[in-house]
């Protein structure tokens, strides 16, 4: 077996999700190569070469790949990937955008968001907002897969010394171009990698009140998340949404504040180790998954919690 892992990176450094994907590749077994496609991505490629367990790093360094446009990167993945039995990428918005496009070029039905490897052709993945876990077997020659980061430990980012090889082929479809981006800047840890996450919902009432959560987050070294209702209402930006269609998190501690616990929200956090819910409605479904539930008005409980930490 030979596995191609598609690195997630910003040209300068690797994203953590790449390491979880390498672990998923290791549980399939076989030689693992990593593809780093980008523009001026030498530093990311060097980092990939240090991942323990990686055989070879392929670097496609070309302006066309700079912003990970699917129209350009997917043909590259299909071209290189057809020599492998498996192609894996993190199930991030980048991976989800590119991998199905690459799969269709190979006439393959991809498998999204796997949470376990049962064998080389059989995987588990959540469906119906995580209410059901399906075991799926693929009959395709090449398996094209995205990997849920929280379900696999991170591979060691140091200790490896893979060979780095340049890939020359450039695919520039000319039908799409990058215009701009607004990326959230925060000194707090990344939501999907944080050990502690504190999230606010509609009960927070407005964006200013999220300050209460930021204060606690800074004491605990936590990331701050939100429900869809809080994002839709404009309290906080979209990259903070946790859930079926937002980010999937599984921290040591998840604190849900003023969140009712709709199945679509639970889909994103119910694999957290310890769940705390603060909600004034004792019937709120979030209490069914909470290890510690506090029925209280958040505007009293949260400042008090802040004071006691």
């Amino acid at each position: 077996m030979s596995i191609l892992v598609i690195a997630e990176h910003d040209n300068a450094s690797l994203k953590g999700a790449t390491l979880n994907t390498v672990t998923a590749a290791q549980s399939i077994g076989g030689d693992i190569d990593v593809l780093v496609a980008g523009a001026g991505c030498g530093a990311a490629a060097e980092a990939a070469a240090k991942i323990s367990g990686v055989n070879k790093v392929l670097v496609a360094d070309n302006a066309a790949y700079g912003h990970q446009l699917a129209e350009n990167v997917a043909p590259l993945i299909a071209e290189i990937g057809k020599a492998y039995t498996h192609i894996l990428a993190p199930a991030t918005t980048t991976g989800k955008n590119i991998m199905p496009r690459a799969a269709a070029l190979l006439d393959v039905q991809p498998i999204s968001d796997i949470i376990s490897v049962e064998s080389a052709d059989t995987f588990k993945r959540p469906v119906y907002a995580g209410n059901v876990i399906a075991t799926v077997q693929s009959a395709d020659v090449t398996k094209v897969i995205t990997v849920r980061g929280t379900a696999f430990d991170a591979a060691a980012g140091e200790g490896g010394s893979a060979a780095v090889e340049a890939v020359d082929t450039a695919h520039d479809s000319g039908v799409s171009s990058f215009v701009g981006e607004e990326l959230a800047k925060s000194d707090r840890p990344e939501l999907t990698a944080a050990k502690v996450v504190i999230s606010g919902g509609r009960g927070m009432q407005n964006g200013e009140n999220f300050e209460m959560l930021y204060k606690i987050a800074d004491k605990l070294g936590a990331a701050v998340g939100a429900s869809r209702a809080a994002v839709d209402a404009g309290f906080v930006p979209n990259d903070m949404q946790v859930g079926q269609t937002g980010k999937i998190v599984a921290p040591e501690l998840y604190i849900a504040v003023g969140i009712s616990g709709a199945i679509q929200h639970l889909a994103g956090m119910k694999d957290s180790k310890v769940i705390v819910a603060i909600n004034k409605d004792e019937e709120a479904p979030i209490f069914q998954v909470a290890d510690y539930g506090l029925v209280a008005d958040l505007f009293e409980a949260v400042p008090e919690l802040d004071g006691k930490l």
Binding site: T93, E181, L183, T192, N238
Partner: peptide, 11 residues
């Protein structure tokens, strides 16, 4: 809507 925030592309 991308993981880091928002990205705009022209097609």
């Amino acid at each position: 809507e991308v993981d880091g925030g928002l990205q705009t592309v022209s097609l």
